[in-house]
């Protein structure tokens, strides 16, 4: 596909709209699931061993704050507000958690002498028990959609500040 064709496709606003809907709805629903049960999310976070021992506040704050942040970011993307900033923030979150999921699932696979894709655990993704490869694939799709939202120059079907000012 030529650069001109890609530009026309982007100008149509369709790729951005699909990316916003996909990522926004996913974070809204999965963040909502975590928000409904903060303890379950805290337990899932603990399994990653990514927080220094003896500093429970850091893990507690993450477990307490992240679910609502995900819901808010999902809503912002669906509305089309601060799209690039939201996409970049979620991109960072997804990259960090994808690395953590891969590392933890690899440890579990090595401990049980099992293939990575046979590992089922609660990755804290908001879906309960989930296959590790399925979680990583889901994150890969979301990462790609975040990149589309970040790179798109279109602002079609986005809520604009001017519209809000007009009332």
């Amino acid at each position: 596909m030529t650069e001109g064709a890609l530009r026309r496709l982007d100008d149509s606003g369709v790729p951005l709209l699909l990316a916003r809907l996909g990522v926004g709805a996913t974070f809204l629903v999965l963040g909502g699931n975590k928000l409904a049960d903060p303890v379950a999310f805290l337990k899932a976070l603990r399994e990653y061993d990514m927080f220094p021992p003896g500093a429970p506040v850091l893990m507690n704050v993450t477990a307490a704050a992240l679910p609502f942040a995900e819901v808010a970011c999902g809503a912002l993307l669906l509305a089309g507000v601060a799209v690039r900033g939201t996409a970049l923030f979620l991109l960072g979150l997804l990259a960090a958690f994808s690395l953590a999921i891969h590392a933890h699932a690899s440890d579990l696979a090595a401990a049980g002498a099992q293939p990575l894709c046979s590992i089922v655990f609660d990755c804290g993704c908001g879906k309960g028990l989930q296959n590790a490869c399925s979680a990583l694939a889901q994150n890969a799709v979301l990462l790609l959609l975040c990149l589309v939202a970040l790179a798109s120059r279109s602002r079609r079907w986005c809520l604009r500040a001017e519209w809000l000012r007009r009332g």
Binding site: A64, A65, A69, A72, A82, G85, L88, F89
Partner: peptide, 16 residues
């Protein structure tokens, strides 16, 4: 964009 992401992250986490 980076500044927007940082501000947005801080605001939503704080609201969280």
């Amino acid at each position: 964009t980076l500044a927007e992401a940082v501000l947005l992250g801080a605001a939503t986490l704080g609201a969280g």
